[in-house]
Amino acid sequence: MSFYFTLNTGSSSVKFALYKAQAEPDLFISGIVERLGPSARLKMQTPGEDIVRELGTVDHASAVVAIFAKMEPYLQGQPVVGIGHRIVHGGNAFFKPTELTSEVVQKLEQMIPLAPLHQPYSLATIRAAKQVFPGVLQIGCFDTAFHAGHTFPNDAFAIPRHFYEEGVRRYGFHGLSFDYICSEMRREHPDVANGRLVIAHLGNGASMCAVEEGRSINASTSFSAVDGLAMGTRCGRLDPGVMLYLMQEKELSAAEIESIIYRRSGLLGLSEESSDMRVLEHSEELFSKQAINYYCYQIRREVGAMAATLEGIDALIFSAGIGENSARVRSSVCEPLEFLGITIDQEKNMANAPEIGTGPVRVFIMPTNEEQVIARAVAEATAKTQ
């Protein structure tokens, strides 16, 4: 037996999974190193037990070392034959899973300005994995790749054309999640899978995607992962004039503005209480209630825009932490959309049932699994080398 290993790197965490190597990878161990910094913690689910360990001071690179140290006994001497990495931004260069050679890593370094909250940390875990697993095939899977091939109106900004040619365009993100949802729709609901789908990936990071025949048509995120919907700490859609005002009138630096729009905005900025929807839903504070209302309004607005892009809608799919678990958000999004044919059964909604729609537009709640998509890419790549 041999294994595949996946790493899904965030700004303050590293999710990992170990799969038995076969055509459809079989999950064996999964976990996360969270709260990276001075009080990092490892959580790991194994076949026999759930493990929680305090790690002390750990960064992204040392997290990979810690993960392997805890995981190695379960390998029982069997090899890891392929490693897959989630990489947020592939730019104009990478549209499919790609072997992470030195040349590829150098190109990814040049894309750090496109995803400053994620790209540096992904590169840190890639380098660490190459040291821990020398000679093992390493594959990069790009969140932007699923959105490749958008038509020009869904790909461009109305600024001087040469910027578009230089790569300033609407890339879209959360592609691995959307890819997985599409694959699950084909498996579980083939009668609607190739129709006009609107998928809402609603987690701490949030975005939406219009899909037809399994292909991305439009995405709410664009040049960066900060555009589109309001998120946990990211502002979402913002008039560029606001940033000019902050620079010119408030004399804020680019670094200060970056901190505001990536780390101090969204639900946290509006509520002045928390970036966690669970906390806000239990809050009696006016600002927290307004933050939730704003969040849901922006999702409804995006559903309408994507229905227009698709010239109709056959299914709406909620996914990720908030999408899968917040009945309040789903209800607030769906109730005003009856004019589109979207209505829901509130009892099923409260129970987080897999399908909650009652109207002509089917409404689903579907867990996402980015790691499975990464593992499948590793399986395909290793098969080509054998």
Rank of each mutant, 00 (worst) to 15 (best):
G149F: 10
E249K: 14
R35G: 05
A254T: 14
T101M: 00
R278K: 15
A308T: 14
H282V: 08
N204A: 13
L280Q: 03
P336H: 12
Y245G: 07
I374K: 02
G236W: 05
S12H: 12
K20M: 13
V88T: 02
T6N: 00
M350F: 02
L176D: 09
Y164N: 08
K43R: 15
M71W: 01
Y74H: 13
L176H: 09
T144E: 12
T6A: 05
F339N: 07
V373Q: 02
A291F: 01
T221S: 12
F318V: 10
M1S: 14
K130T: 12
S220V: 07
N325E: 01
V80Y: 04
A17V: 11
A21W: 08
G172N: 06
G37Q: 03
A148V: 12
V226I: 15
A21M: 11
R196E: 13
G84Q: 06
A307Y: 10
E212Y: 15
A63E: 04
G31Y: 06
I261A: 03
L117Q: 01
G56L: 01
D276M: 14
D59E: 03
G323R: 00
E103F: 09
R328G: 05
A124I: 11
A193N: 12
A206L: 07
E281Y: 03
E370G: 08
A327R: 11
Q110T: 15
V88G: 02
S102Y: 02
A193Q: 10
L229T: 00
E272T: 02
S11I: 13
E258R: 09
A21Y: 09
H282R: 15
T9W: 11
S183Q: 11
A320Q: 02
P120N: 01
T221M: 15
G48P: 04
I67L: 06
L238D: 02
L176E: 08
H147C: 13
E285G: 11
E109A: 10
V132K: 05
K348H: 09
A305G: 07
P47K: 13
V104D: 12
T343E: 14
A230E: 05
S216I: 06
R264M: 11
V361T: 04
F133M: 00
F94H: 08
V65A: 15
N349E: 09
G214A: 07
T151A: 12
R187Y: 03
A383G: 07
K15Y: 10
F3Y: 15
H147E: 14
R330N: 02
A327C: 05
K96L: 00
E166T: 06
R86Q: 04
F157Q: 10
E99Y: 02
R301H: 04
G214Y: 05
S220F: 09
S265N: 06
